[in-house]
Design a protein around this nucleic acid. Structure first.
Lengths: 145, 145
DNA sequence: TCGCAGATGGGAACTGTTCCCATCTTATGG
DNA sequence: CCATAAGATGGGAACAGTTCCCATCTGCGA
């Protein structure tokens, strides 16, 4: 659905291709998942992209479908791609974000539509829990927070 | 697991039962789901509970398991009870929060544990989507955002 | 009733995000 | 190749939600 040039397609949509927009897009590509602040931090001095611009550009990129964002805890977290939907699994211990196949939730979402008439949107979904590395042994100890 | 007196059990845990703690707890009981700010707004003048205290008390109540919170968009949203787990269904149009049976997700969560070794925590789960009232007709029109 | 550990009020400080506007840049037409 | 105008950026002010600090106050055990 996206041309392989990613950010390049911005021109076809009537937006200008600026240095900053490229930098931000590519930074996000490298990071995978990142908050606006994290994007800011990985941009080299030479880029000199202001935070305002990062917010503005990420917003624009989302509007045109090149990126998506979800709220992880207190922060907006962006990632490339609006097409390859995935669920975010956020480890509450190490904060690492994994991506999971959204189809795992199809039955649950179907049940929600049936039982509650609620049309869930998988693209916004963030699931908190504990990843493999942070899990206690298989003795299933539970120590919430 | 909870004595029926709710906030009363705070004494047994070594915390003082203050006027403010009662007010906050009961406000949350009435509201169902509420942000600290919403709690503040429903407390009568006579209560005069400062926002600092509301944050502090909600935090305490969560620590001792009387309430739970999740992040809905940009806001921390609290609700009574750590025992009757439920999933939050947040309508992105009208912002109403429904509660759904968490067992709907058991199969999906089991699959996540199996496929990703990720132990999901249903108590933190917030699902965005569109509720019955805000849904377009059954022609399934999709207008994201 | 007294005393003190613990709780509160309220305002300062902090963080993430949005807004504003003067300045600068991209893309177009000459 | 340059001028131009619409569009984009920088940076700081403004905002909202939340945390922190400390002087003052209060619940509750002695």
């Amino acid at each position: 659905m996206e041309p392989p040039n990613g950010i390049g397609s911005i021109r076809a949509l009537g937006y200008r291709l600026t240095f900053q927009r490229e930098q931000i897009y590519h930074a996000l590509e490298r990071l995978g998942h990142a908050t606006p602040d994290q994007v800011s931090q990985v941009l080299p001095e030479t880029a000199g992209v202001s935070l305002s611009t990062i917010y503005r550009v990420l917003d624009l990129l989302e509007k045109i479908g090149l990126v998506h964002h979800t709220h992880v805890g207190h922060n907006a977290t962006y990632h490339i791609g609006g097409y390859d939907d995935h669920v975010h699994l956020v480890c509450r211990d190490c904060a690492v974000i994994q991506e999971a196949d959204p189809h795992l939730l199809d039955p649950a979402f179907a049940a929600m539509l049936r039982d509650y008439h609620f049309a869930a949107d998988v693209r916004q979904l963030v699931i908190y829990g504990r990843c493999k590395e942070c899990a206690p042994g298989d003795d299933g100890a539970d120590s919430p927070d």
